[in-house]
Simulated scan of single mutants.
Amino acid sequence: MNSLRRAFLAGMIALPVASCSAESRTAGPDLPQTAPNGAQDPRAAAYERNLYQVAQGGRYFTWYGCGSCHGGNARGALNLSDRPWLHGGDLDQVYGFIADRHPGAQPGYAARIPTEQLWQITAYVRNLPRLTPERRRRQDLDQVGEPQGSNWSGPVR
């Protein structure tokens, strides 16, 4: 085997290993089964620093109809693109408000949305202040054909 072919094969093997960790996807027992255990929960990095998880959170934000109140034109407490937030902006505070204390959901969304999706939505919401209006509009356009709000009944449990 010549050296050029060997180098090519080595590169093809190394490429998947060196792929972007900011978009890594996890499936299995390491997915969260519980709510965050404080503002510094070590599991947060796997969601907030992962583009895939944040994007999934944006998808669920749309699917569950959050954008109907918290869309790009929301004002006051409904505007999630600004800070500080009325109910706190720490990871556990945002998650807890979405899951248990949201005034539009009785019972709380934790009764209807799986834990991992709540983590993803929380990561997305906490990233909203960093999203430019153009990027948020692009995401909204990308999701036009997907189920939204009342058209989405949630995952089958």
Rank of each mutant, 00 (worst) to 15 (best):
M1T: 11
N2E: 15
L4M: 14
A10S: 13
I13R: 13
A14H: 03
V17M: 06
S19T: 02
C20K: 00
T26Q: 02
D30H: 03
P32N: 03
T34N: 10
A35G: 09
P36Q: 10
A39D: 07
Q40R: 10
R43N: 08
A44F: 01
A44S: 09
A46I: 01
E48C: 06
N50Y: 01
V54G: 05
A55S: 15
A55G: 13
A55Q: 07
G57W: 05
G58L: 15
R59H: 08
Y64N: 07
Y64D: 02
C66F: 07
G67Q: 12
H70Q: 04
G71T: 04
G71Q: 02
N73T: 15
N73K: 14
A74D: 08
G76T: 06
G76H: 04
G76M: 11
D82T: 15
H87C: 08
G88A: 12
D92P: 04
Q93A: 14
V94Q: 12
I98H: 05
A99Q: 01
H102R: 09
A105P: 00
Y109N: 15
A111L: 03
A111D: 14
I113A: 04
P114F: 07
Q117T: 13
Y124M: 12
R126Y: 04
P129L: 11
L131Q: 09
L131R: 06
T132F: 06
E134N: 06
R135I: 05
R135P: 00
R136H: 13
R137W: 09
L141D: 08
L141R: 10
D142N: 06
D142G: 11
Q143I: 10
G145I: 05
Q148W: 12
Q148F: 14
S150D: 02
S153W: 09
R157T: 13
